[in-house]
Amino acid sequence: MEHTTGFVLPNSGHNRDDESSRMGMWLFLFTELLLFGGLFIVYMVYRMLNHEAFLLSSFELNVTMGTVNTVVLLVSSMTVAMSITAVQRGNNALSAKLLAITLGLSLVFLVIKYFEWSAKIHHGLFPGMDLYKALPKGESLFFFLYFIMTGLHALHIIIGAVLMGVTIYRTKKGLINSDNYTLTENTGLYWHLVDLIWIYLFPLFYLIH
């Protein structure tokens, strides 16, 4: 680092700010909360207007699959939190392994979701299909919201899975270590948000009978 010019950037030598990175992730998560919050308001309002129809339709959803997926997400939330503990303790191999388990669980979630959606689509309940169009207004709306909200959530799962893949790659390469693990933390935070959203989606769609 030459000082001959008489001018040195205040932080020359490193251009990382872990605290700000994490704050940035949290601010992004707040916008995500408001995005889903908007959807929850739509759900709430139409549920109030179509109380019986929503009640009736919710029995069509598979509680077992919903419960299994809830457990899958909760366990994956733990494994991603553990991977941060591992990397903080300097155990990169274990951290990568725990992230890989999390990635695996995200795929399990998607496969179960795929079977759930397929069953509904097979019955013709996807918006625009025959049974869907034959349903009374309130009931078709329930399935419309079901597909929109679980669909947007599944999209978040996919993004989280990709993020997880990148984090595993960088951990294995040694680019992430006990001194520099903000990516692992931010991936974790994002993954927990995906879990948080599901914690509300699950009872609202599957359980409230």
Binding site: H14, D17, M82, N180
Partner: peptide
Amino acid sequence: ENHKENTSHPKVHISSFRDHWSTL
């Protein structure tokens, strides 16, 4: 002194695996 490596984790709390299991 600008080369101080990582100043953003001055005193991080490391949750134990045990804590994570109880949370789950």
